[in-house]
């Protein structure tokens, strides 16, 4: 394994409100970089996936991102941006 600096993925959480219902980026990513989590897990209660804020999108495996930009293309709310960090070439 040699060091590689991975692309920076930014999620605008104000724009990405219902990721579990939308799921476009999660299903299009070739290396499955994203994960979605419920923000609360309550006894006897199922979370409504259409209610904003109940689920949160997270960049879980950023080291696997190749910046192919497919997720940016499919996002209906333009919530995702990918940029290469400075000094990326080691």
């Amino acid at each position: 394994m040699y060091p590689i600096v991975a692309p920076l993925i930014k999620i605008n959480q104000q724009a990405c409100t219902t990721p579990f219902a939308c799921k476009r980026c999660l299903q299009v990513c070739p290396t499955a970089v994203f994960m979605v989590h419920e923000t609360k897990m309550l006894r006897l209660e199922e979370t409504d996936k259409h209610e904003p804020g109940n689920y949160r999108l997270r960049v879980a495996f950023r080291d696997k991102c190749s910046a192919c930009n497919r997720c940016v293309d499919v996002c209906p709310n333009n919530a995702l941006t990918i940029e290469m960090p400075e000094g990326a070439a080691i």
């Binding site: 394994m1 060091p3 590689i4 991975a6 879980a60 495996f61 950023r62 080291d63 991102c65 960090p85």
Partner: peptide, 13 residues
């Protein structure tokens, strides 16, 4: 693990 992966993504092996 999230901490480890963040470090790896920044090139800090």
């Amino acid at each position: 693990l999230p901490h480890a992966l963040e470090a790896k993504a920044n090139g800090d092996l």
